[in-house]
Design a protein around this nucleic acid. Structure first.
Lengths: 348, 348
DNA sequence: TTATTATTCGCAATCGATTGCTGTAAAAAT
DNA sequence: ATTTTTACAGCAATCGATTGCGAATAATAA
């Protein structure tokens, strides 16, 4: 209870008339210690309630069983699942996570990176913030000899390990699905275009339209609509067009899709008959709205595990020259009521 | 890019023909360095891309700007919000968080605690796991001179700082609300009773019943029903009783309340007319179910901030003898459609 | 000009654990 | 019985930053 100093290997050594080096060896299971003294050391270590000082150990050994993680927001489903997945794997390997959130701020992201560099983490896993500006801070990570893994939102030009969702493919599938359901004018709610993921989703949208010989109409593409509120605003605007859309693909998030749904319900626009809605992320609530919302699952927990395994299997063993690798995970379209225009005809 | 050694204060010192101590002083803004040399040092530090080694610094200074957090599950709404709140405050104070999840396992919780002790964190913030056994590992934290703050699920007998929800009060209000709405037979879905929070919620339930001269019926109290699936199972059992309940308080979580709702909908039991439902936690989905679910908001993000502030304001300034303090936060009953039996009569 | 004070900087110990090297004693081989 | 090998433990340097103390220089006062 007192703030007295913690017991060190020297305390143990002194008590046993040994040298600290022997204590260290005994505790780290190195050879060069007789079985008798090892047992003695372990016993007194327990008696004195010895706890290793990882700071000293890591300083001396020059490396750290710690991985830094930087995400925009910890309490966003996708990211908290990623972290859960990461933690699952890293824990088993005896590694710890230091977690930071950038709060979608570039300045703060830079600070987080620097803190983690100072901590001598052995790897930084990052998904960049929304107002991402340039990648000099990430370059710095590499320069300092720290492994870097980017996921989901990445700096495209930087050659690092990356774990990505195939956003374009997923987006294309979603829009194709809408087209197949018979929707004719499909609107797109977009996120900030400085983030690669939103660019890709836009491209998937365009690709799907072109593939089916649909026109790409700029007035149906609304930028920066990635909260529930902004989704609602965008929907009101879209539905009041002279020629309104009959489907909305909220490529930004399920939250904006929820905004769309609420406005539609309020305005008496029947979903899915008069308006199809598709979200992105498979947030838990999409399953239980009325109607339930079609969305895209990103396998976030398993993505977290993938990232961690990438580190342990590919990067760590030969930290000298692991070739940066891009792992692409194909998200899955989850089809629910909000886009099943043909449901009735099928059911009968 | 190379794995060459990082620049240290010695490198800077050598380049400028100075001593490392001066470099250290310059970088830490201590006095005893002339303005000229300080500027020179800062300049070359930037040139050489110097990054402090926090391991060395913390080892020498004997303390660590790091706080450890242990939660059962990172990707559970309540906990990820707590963490977000914590991070918000600690970041501003220049502190880092090391986050671990116990996965509801006591053994793993103990390991997490030990890791954090080894890391010499200055504080451990914990919500104990579901199969919590005894508090010796937490006592150990205190013995090692590390501050301990428990929140939500706490070891009652251990005198530490605690930040709690007033579960009993909240539970009582919820049940009272049900009674006022005219429900006559109110069932309770309970969590594991070795966790204080569930005990308190049970007591609130009983207190409310007694207050309104209702009988406490053991057959209406179902233990261990804290997932959606278990909630559904419990509901089926309850509704098939000869004298079934007309309201269910899922005191464990909104997820079990959701299970209740789905079973009711499936069985054609009208909510809220024939069955009232109240959950716990104010998960985001409770707002958008049909009908929306009455629940209890725990102010999780602000609770996280409260915890962090407790550390910085009360504990840190005088680490010698801060008197353990219990902060109780009153959760808020959020009344929604699932318990508004009187809605129609009111509206007319 | 000399004495005193204030600045600025270097020296060296320290935080706690690790590890290559050396020395000694015991065990094994000759 | 002597030599060689092995096992075990100690010595001391090291990781990088911090800090009390003292020395040297510059600035100020007398």
């Amino acid at each position: 209870m007192k703030n007295q100093k913690r017991t060190t290997i020297y305390d143990i050594a002194k008590k046993l008339n040994l040298n600290a080096s022997s204590v260290s060896r005994a505790l780290s299971n190195n050879s060069n210690v007789s079985e008798a003294t090892r047992k003695l050391i372990l016993k007194t270590a327990k008696e004195l309630n010895y706890k290793q000082n990882s700071l000293a150990s890591n300083l001396r050994k020059g490396h750290n069983q710690t991985i830094g993680v930087i995400v925009p927001r910890i309490n966003q489903n996708f990211f908290s699942n990623i972290i859960a997945g990461l933690e699952e794997v890293t824990y088993q390997k005896g590694y710890n996570l230091i977690i930071c959130q950038s709060n979608e701020s570039y300045a703060r992201e830079v600070k987080c990176v620097n803190t983690l560099i100072n901590q001598h983490v052995s790897c930084i896993i990052i998904s960049v913030s929304a107002d991402f500006e340039d990648d000099s801070h990430l370059k710095n990570v590499i320069d300092q000899g720290i492994q870097l893994i980017q996921f989901d939102r990445v700096a495209d030009n930087l050659e690092t390990f990356k774990v990505l969702n195939d956003n374009e493919q997923a987006s294309m599938e979603a829009v194709s699905h809408l087209i197949e359901q018979g929707y004719k004018r499909i609107a797109l709610l977009e996120g900030p275009q400085n983030l690669n993921i939103f660019k890709q989703r836009r491209e998937g949208y365009i690709a799907a339209l072109k593939k089916h010989d649909f026109e790409v109409l700029p007035e149906l593409m609304i930028e920066n609509a990635w909260t529930k509120e902004l989704g609602a605003v965008a929907t009101r605007k879209l539905l009041s067009l002279p020629n309104p859309p009959d489907a909305i693909f909220a490529s930004t998030s399920d939250f904006s899709a929820l905004g769309v749904l609420e406005v539609a319900n309020k305005m008496g626009v029947v979903v899915p008959d008069e308006l199809g809605i598709c979200g992105y992320s498979n947030e838990s609530f999409t399953e239980i709205t009325t109607p339930s919302i079609t969305t895209i699952d990103q396998y976030s927990v398993s993505m977290g595990k993938t990232i961690a395994n990438l580190f342990f299997q590919e990067i760590k063993p030969e930290s000298k020259d692991a070739v940066p690798k891009i792992v692409s995970i194909k998200p899955k379209l989850i089809i629910r009521s909000s886009t099943l225009k043909n449901k009735k005809s099928r059911e009968t």
